[in-house]
Design a protein around this nucleic acid. Sequence first.
RNA 1: GCGGGCGUAGCUCAGUGGUAGAGCGUCAGCCUUCCAAGCUGAACGUCGAGGGUUCGAGUCCCUUCGCCCGCUCCA
Length: 520
Amino acid sequence: MSEASSVPVKSMDAIMSLCKRRGFIYQASEIYGGINGFWDYGPLGAQMKKNLRDAWWQDMIMRPCWGKDGPNGKPVKCVPVETRIIQHPKVWEASGHVGGFNDPMVDCRETKQRYRYDHVSVFVPASGDPGDKPLFAYMKDSPSEAKQQKKAEKAFGQVKTVTLTTIPVAQFTKVLGPDAEKVGTLTEPKQFNLMFKTYLGATATEDDKAYMRPETAQGIFVQFKNVVDTTRVKVPFGIGNTGTSFRNEVTPRNFTFRSREFEQAELEFFCHPDESPAWYAFWRDYRMAWWQSIGLTSENLILREHDKDELSHYSVGTSDVEYRFPFTAPGYGELEGIAHRGSFDLTQHQQHSGVKLEYNDTERGEVLPNGGRRGERYIPHCIEPAAGLDRGVLALICEAYTRDESRPSPEFMKFHPRIAPIKAAIFPLVAKDGMPEVAEKLQADLNARFWKLGGIEMDEKQSIGKRYARMDEAGCPYCFTVDGDTLKDQTVTCRDRDTGAQTRISIDKVGDFLAEKLGV
RNA sequence: GCGGGCGUAGCUCAGUGGUAGAGCGUCAGCCUUCCAAGCUGAACGUCGAGGGUUCGAGUCCCUUCGCCCGCUCCA
């Protein structure tokens, strides 16, 4: 994690209170005291999140990569699906989530610490029996490592490292916990399932157990064959979806960043194995550019390529688009992971389901006498750009939040026009002399043209400055003010949120002006 | 899960065991010709929840929930 940045860290408290005050984000079930790990969106937040989801859908499914060609020199092709939160339980066995999400943990009775069973290491004698002396458990790269090593070397001389999993539970009585004073305080390993469990049918027996998905991706892999068989898609192509996933986090934290219920926007892009490195690099670079295009323009956004030792055994590469949130600074938090998953997922589902998931590529293989090709059968490789929409909203809010004490309205949200929940506001300078009527008509005209994209508001209450300030906090990029001159020369003032600058434009050009700014 | 801090109006926060407060915001009216102006008025609180001590609890005690910070965890 890089720590170099000249961007000042914003106050998360101030951001959170603005989110509440202006109706972006509320605590879920707040009147009952809230519920840990769940957050609701208010009117502005819900519209903003829809704008983000729509932008993803447009730029990933409808017109992928802004219409640019992929590394194969052809336009990128993607189709959508919508799959269910609850899948066949075997889906999660095949995906590795039953297992990976069932990490056994050990607790320390003395220090009340909890450790992942397979992450605990132990210093034991390099050879021979420890006798009555303890075995020294530690967590790699924590202070306990050096401390325990010193003790172990004093006890045994030469030491070596094994993992706790290799030590019989019966021997735990001889293990000194990483930060413990007494030996034998570690409990036997226990299961902590991060997947939410539920029961199908009203009788709720263990036989009816099912899981709520911890990611949307598996639904795509499971329907891969149906999409290929029914929609005339040809590799390379992508299948995308957005939807809610659930993870029963041990410690929900950091506002909406780590929630137990969250929405993902995931694309699985299938290609020939030989072309997969090029597609991986292509998606990685596009996804970074995409987040920048919707407003994450500061150096708080980085693309981080995983080190080789962070990669799954099947993966050629993984990159994260990361954002430096106020609560992660000087570190970063993940917004999106772009993973080269190889043929891992389709292979797993082929094995577990017994259904062939090979693709017959009729554009490959030897040329036949009739000019066609024999075809090549293979399991496609997959590039997975998987974004978190709630994290995206949070990053966009943090990025947009601005304080400038020199302004009349010091606190404002600098949303990209495409993301802003309110696209424009119309004000009569004063609520008399026919100005409200002109403003109402302009509001109605703009609304008729832009209602699909977001709010077009009209406000005539209180001073013009207060109305500008209200729109600044809501992140509305443009305000149009009808004044005395409007009645004479048919022009209005266009006020820019970020600069406060005012320009006069013809009232019948306001729609075109807004369309250009919104990129429609 | 552990440790620390905090929960009072929509937001930010005062509040000595004795009548529930301020600023901002919101709403209504007046005023107002370009940046949270002014005047008048109004609404909004079971003081996070539940117990206990007390003649009396926002205040003291216990339990619990939530949020923030540090560990731990982070598929």
